[in-house]
Design a protein around this nucleic acid. Structure first.
Length: 260
DNA sequence: ATGGCCAATATGATTGGA
């Protein structure tokens, strides 16, 4: 089973790229972030034509997440538990069954957290605490679980082209990275790092200041795997070339293969 | 952080992104 994540930065701006990429990479399940539309405005038809079922948590203008799956989507749930006041559309989950196995897939869009001297950074840290609690609870099932999405977290200095520039940024602050390690230490495996220790593996290049041309990137899109999912991991990759397409998102797709 | 961007909005300037 191939599972991918991609922050598309407006799904309606990315339909042509999405169709081209889905056709070439042929993922079974795709987690999309920043669809930037309500459910009624989601471009269902071209994606359903490729054989995908779709679960959507939309929001006007900002955020918004969706899961595409060639297998039926069951037990769809929206919203990360732990804060009834949080109305931002950043979390949707579903269970996917292939013939030979079942996996729970979570699609998440973790808050950016900048500027750090505003309420945005505490919101990010609290969101991470909620994600850690959610994961802790769901790991008790001892089943394949994949947390895929835009984490807005640079885990280590090996995941950024120029670490010095990010030292005070919400994506790279010690407190942010410590909470990411806390998630990992529950027993979640960073799929890409289980496959490769290479430097220069990035998933985001800013639109500004020629970041793409200079390869001034960061790795912030991740698939975190429960032990039962990690034991089935056979491959992982970043589709970097997509950043060079016409009218690109600033993020590129990341994918894994699980042996189901 | 930023020279340089991009997307959405009852739009033509502002907000948010990372």
């Amino acid at each position: 089973m191939r599972i991918a994540t991609w922050n598309v930065n407006s799904v309606n701006q990315r339909v042509d790229s999405l169709v081209a990429w889905l056709t070439a990479r042929a993922p079974d399940v795709v987690c999309l972030q920043e669809i930037k539309c309500q459910e009624a405005g989601f471009p269902r038809e071209p994606l359903e034509a490729l054989g995908y079922n779709i679960a959507i948590l939309g929001q006007k203008t900002f955020n918004g997440v969706a899961i595409l799956s060639k297998f039926p989507l069951e037990d769809i749930a929206t919203g990360l538990p732990g804060d009834d006041e949080d109305v931002q559309s950043r979390f949707i989950s579903a269970t996917v069954s292939a013939g030979s196995g079942t996996v729970k897939v979570v699609c998440l869009y973790l808050p950016n957290g900048n500027p750090t001297n505003t309420e945005k950074y505490p919101y990010k840290l609290k969101w991470m605490d909620r994600l850690i609690r959610y994961t802790h609870e769901h790991l008790k099932a001892e089943e394949p679980l994949v947390l895929a999405g835009d984490y807005n977290i640079i885990p280590t200095a090996a995941d950024v082209h120029n670490p010095e520039l990010w030292l005070t940024d919400a994506l790279f602050l010690p407190r942010t990275r410590a909470k990411f390690r806390e998630l990992a230490n529950l027993g979640m495996t960073d799929a890409l790092r289980a496959i490769s220790d290479d430097d220069g593996l990035y998933t985001f290049w800013d639109y500004q200041a020629g970041a793409w041309q200079k390869n001034n990137g960061i790795r912030i899109d991740h698939l975190m795997l429960s032990p039962q999912a990690a034991d089935r991991l056979s491959a992982a990759g970043i589709d970097k070339h997509v950043r060079g397409w016409e009218k690109p998102s600033d993020h590129v797709p990341v994918w894994i293969d699980l042996d189901f």
